[in-house]
Amino acid sequence: MAFAWKEAGLTYNRYLAVAARAVRRSLKEGPRVHAERRGEMELRFAKWNNGKQGESKSLATENAAAMAEGAEKSS
């Protein structure tokens, strides 16, 4: 694969999110607080199986876990 983030097991969206967070953190104090609000994500999600709702989990931690798993597979 030609893409570094794919090799690290990240999706393109995850890569973009990380890059965007880095840019936001490097802003000056005033605009930074404003910009960081745009990066917040507090969704929860649940997987469904056969018409039954599974456990409700935080999307952020679950995504990070999935990426880490992807990284282990590809390395």
Binding site: A17, A20, G39, E40, M41, E42, L43, A46, K47, S56
Partner: peptide, 19 residues
């Protein structure tokens, strides 16, 4: 297959959509 909660508390961010 999946359901998401916490949508629509505030103006949705691109981070939401990406996740």
């Amino acid at each position: 297959k999946l359901s998401f909660a916490g949508v629509g508390k505030d103006v949705p961010t691109f981070a939401d959509a990406q996740a």
